[in-house]
Simulated assay, not measured.
Amino acid sequence: MKAILMTAVGDPDVLQIADIPDPTIQSPTEILVRLKAAGINPIDTKIRVRGTFQPERMPAILGCDGAGVVEAIGSEVSKFKVGDQVYFCNGGLGLHQGNYAELTTIDEKFAAHKPKSLSFEEAAAVPLVLLTAWEALYDRANLQSASISPNVLIHAGAGGVGHVAIQLAKLRGANVCTTIGSEAKARFARGLGADLTIAYKDNDFVEAAINWTKGEGVDIVFDTVGGKVIEQSFPAVKICGDLVTILEPPADISWKVARTRNLRFSFELMLTPMLLGKTALQVQQAKVLSESAALFDTGKLKIHVSEVFQLADIAKAHQLLETGSAIGKIVISI
C-alpha cells in the first residue's frame, strides 16, 4: 500500500510517500479498513516537530483520524461486516499505525459506523475535534441543559475544535460567545449559532464577556488556544465557574485570580485513552461517535472542511495548518 512515512523529526518535507506492505489482521476482533480520508490535526504537526511517543519506532505513520470501508474482519467481529463504512480516532502517535495510508487495522470496539450524511472527507474530519469538544464541555465542565441557559466562552470558535464546540454548547441550551480573528471567521461562527463574536485583536475579550453577562462572568470558558490566554481568561469566569483547556499552561502562570474566584480548572486530552492504553475509555469514545452520527444525520451537527489535499500533498496540508488561518478542518483524501 501507499503511505506517508515520517522519516525524521523536522519540517513538513520529512513526510515522504512510500510503498510498504499491507497491514494484516492480528487479532480476532480487528477489522481491516481501506481508508478513504484522514483528518489533519495540530497533534500531527506537533509530533512531526517534536517526535512520536515511541521515537525508537521510526519511520512512523501519522494521522489519528480516519474514515473508510471495512475490507476484511477477524473471526470474532460482530459489530461490522465487509463493506461497512466506518470512522474513528485511532493510531498516529507512534504507538500504532496512523491513517496517512491506504489501509489500516483497528479493533472493532474503537470504531463507529460513519454518519450516512457525511462524505468520507467530512467524516474523517470529525473524531478528534468532536471528542475533544464533547469531553471538555459535557464531561469536564458538566454542561447540562438547564432552565436558565448557561453562558459559555469558547476561544477560537472558527477552528477545528472550536466550531464543533459552539454547536455542542448550543445543543445543551447554552448562550455562546467566542473569540475570532477576522470578520469571515465571525460570520462563520455566527452561522453555527454563536450569540456573540469577539474580535480579540481589537477588543478585550474579558471586558466583552463581563459586559455580555451583565457583570457576572461566564459559567464556562473552553480554551483551545493556550499560552497567556489561559491566565487572561480567569477574570472572565464567574465565581465558582469552570475553565477547561486542551493545552499545557505556561510555567510562569499566576493562579491567584483563579484561586480567589474559586474556579474549577480542568484539562482535556482526548488522546489519553490511546496513550495510556485505557480500553474502556476508548470504547466510550467510540460510543460517543456512534451517538453523534445520528446528530449529523439529523442536521443537528455540522463539520466544516475548508481544504482537501491528496495523499502526496501532505506537506502542503501541514504547512497550511501551521499558518493558523484555516477555518474548520483540513483533510487528506486517499
Rank of each mutant, 00 (worst) to 15 (best):
Val82Arg: 14
Leu15Lys: 07
Thr279Ser: 15
Lys316Trp: 00
Val237Trp: 05
Lys214Tyr: 14
Thr24Cys: 07
Thr272Gln: 05
Ile20Ala: 05
Ala209Phe: 05
Gly191Ala: 04
Gly181Gln: 05
Val33Ser: 10
Val49Tyr: 06
Asp297Cys: 13
Ser254Pro: 01
Asn142Pro: 04
Gly160Ala: 12
Ala3Gln: 13
Glu71Asn: 03
Ser266Met: 12
Cys240Ile: 03
Asp204Tyr: 11
Val288Gln: 03
Asn175Pro: 02
Ile43Ser: 11
Asp65Tyr: 05
Arg48His: 04
Ile314Asp: 06
Val70Arg: 01
Leu153Tyr: 10
Ser119Arg: 09
Gly162Thr: 05
Thr224Cys: 10
Met58Lys: 09
Trp212Tyr: 10
Val126Asn: 13
Lys238Ala: 11
Pro273His: 10
Met274Gln: 15
Thr29Val: 13
Gln285Leu: 10
Leu289Gln: 08
Thr104Val: 13
Ile303Cys: 11
Asp202Asn: 15
Gly94Arg: 05
Ala112His: 11
Leu131Val: 14
Lys316Val: 08
Thr52Cys: 03
Gly157Tyr: 03
Val257His: 00
Glu307Gly: 01
Arg57Ser: 08
Thr323Gln: 06
Ser78Gly: 14
Phe296Ser: 09
Ser78Ile: 12
Tyr138Leu: 15
Ala280Arg: 15
Leu95Arg: 05
Ser78Cys: 13
Asn99Ala: 12
Thr298Met: 11
Gly173Asp: 11
Lys329Met: 10
Ser325Ile: 08
Leu281Arg: 12
Asn203Gly: 00
Leu321Thr: 04
Phe222Glu: 08
Ile253Leu: 07
Leu118Pro: 07
Ile180Asn: 08
Ile230Asn: 03
Leu143Gly: 11
Trp255Val: 08
Cys177Pro: 06
Asp84Asn: 15
Pro12Trp: 01
Phe309Tyr: 14
Pro55Trp: 00
Ile327Phe: 02
Val237Gly: 10
Phe88Ile: 09
Lys36Asp: 05
Leu5Ala: 03
Val218Asn: 10
Val305Arg: 00
Lys201Asp: 11
Gly98Asp: 06
Glu307Ser: 13
Lys185Ala: 14
Thr29Arg: 15
Leu271Asp: 03
Ala37Cys: 05
Asp223Val: 06
Pro115Gln: 07
Lys36Val: 01
Ala286Gln: 11
Ile303Phe: 01
Asp139Trp: 08
Leu118Trp: 01
Trp134Ser: 11
Gly92Asp: 08
Lys302Gly: 04
Gly98Val: 06
Ser292Glu: 02
Ala209Gln: 12
Arg261Ser: 09
Tyr100Ile: 02
Gly39Asp: 04
Ser333Glu: 11
Thr7Tyr: 00
Tyr200Thr: 01
Val331Leu: 07
Lys214Asp: 15
Glu268Cys: 13
Gly91Leu: 07
Ser119Glu: 04
Glu76Phe: 14
Leu128Lys: 00
Ala280Met: 14
Val129Arg: 06
Trp255Ile: 11
Ile253Lys: 03
Asn90Ser: 09
Arg172Thr: 07
Asn203Thr: 15
Gln232Leu: 06
Glu268His: 02
Asp204Asn: 15
Met270His: 01
Ala124Lys: 00
Asp107Ser: 14
His155Ala: 12
Gln26Trp: 03
Phe120Trp: 03
Pro59Lys: 07
Pro12Gly: 10
